[in-house]
Amino acid sequence: MARKILWGSLALAPITVLVHYLVEPSEVAEFVLAAAALVPLAWLIGEATEHAGEHTGPGIGGFLNATFGNAPELIIALLAVNAAKTEVVRGSLSGSVVGNLLLVLGFSLLFGGRGEIDRGSSLVSLGLVGVATLLFLIPAVPSWSGDPERHGLALLSLPVSVALLLLYVGVTWYALRRHRELHVADPEGGAWSLRASLLVLAVATVVTALVAEILVGSLEVFAEEAHLTEFFVAAVIVAIVGNAAEHGGAVVVAARGKLKLATEIALASSAQVAVFLIPAVALLAWLIDPVALSFRPVELIAMGGGAVIATALLADGRTSRSHGVALILAYVGTVAMFFLAGDR
């Protein structure tokens, strides 16, 4: 049923584009429509990536997942860079890390209940978020005084980004070696052909770029009309929208009793944003306009604190619904903190 709804809601994407160019509605309506359209697009990209991975093996499959699985967030971030909305860039990315750590993981545990998880893998993902947060301090701390967008901080962000990407490659290589024997060369029955998967990926990515451009272009007015700051809209609403399909998938998997997989989705997604997507955006931004990883204290506290809370709850490798409630409450507190922080 859910899949049928997602397939049907893909019609929102062309509707959003047509409405934007032909009707010229209010920016608030455009933002809401674009946000809704991005959810099924993110799901479709995830589906196509998964099917493509059935044909390519774990190495290329992992690369496709990292590249296209984060496509909506990457596109939104780069469009925000092009629009000189650097706070939106950093807010949406830090919000994505926190959303996966607290909100998605929290609901997964709430629906999954008691169970056991892959403790080692979970702690590795949480450790990656912790390391990334510490490295972000290098360009962030100097930005707390003076211009946070100054060129020197963008330069200071380069070695941090490279270090994080190397860390990501190393951990991914180790994980692939660890799980290589589990890979089955032949694709599962019902898998799309590789050509079809790549075609869907290409088309969905292009359409996502069009819709994301509308979202970013209408964000400022939406924030004003809703009496919210751009930072809050980016860190909460945009971050959730960019990951919505993945979030829903983790919760559904947990409700079906596959708690270990659901936990892996939430934590691995958070780590992937921290050590792959954020540095990738920082490096790619040099093709448009350099962006410094000058995160605000509230963002670093949210990311680091989220990792600490999740680690404390999952340290023994066991889960419960009370753990899920605690994580969700922590996310609510984080959202309140983002709201009170205001724009820079």
Rank of each mutant, 00 (worst) to 15 (best):
S108V: 07
I301F: 11
A244W: 03
G8P: 14
E264A: 15
R177H: 15
P148I: 03
L165I: 02
P25L: 00
G342N: 05
L123I: 05
V298S: 13
N243Y: 14
L155H: 10
E225G: 11
S218A: 09
F63T: 12
L199K: 13
T86W: 10
L155D: 11
G115V: 10
G106Q: 08
V169R: 12
G59K: 08
A204L: 03
A209T: 12
T16G: 01
L219V: 05
T205H: 09
F111R: 09
K258F: 13
A52N: 09
I15E: 00
L166S: 07
P72K: 00
V221I: 04
G8R: 04
K260A: 15
A66Q: 00
G113F: 05
V216Q: 03
E246I: 00
L101Q: 11
L165F: 00
M337T: 15
R195T: 13
A307R: 01
L18I: 11
A11F: 14
G99D: 08
E230V: 11
D118M: 04
G46L: 04
L134M: 11
A132Y: 05
L210M: 13
Y21M: 02
M303H: 07
V275K: 02
A132T: 10
E188Q: 13
L176F: 15
P279S: 05
G46H: 02
V171E: 11
H179G: 12
V308A: 14
R256I: 01
V184Q: 11
S320T: 14
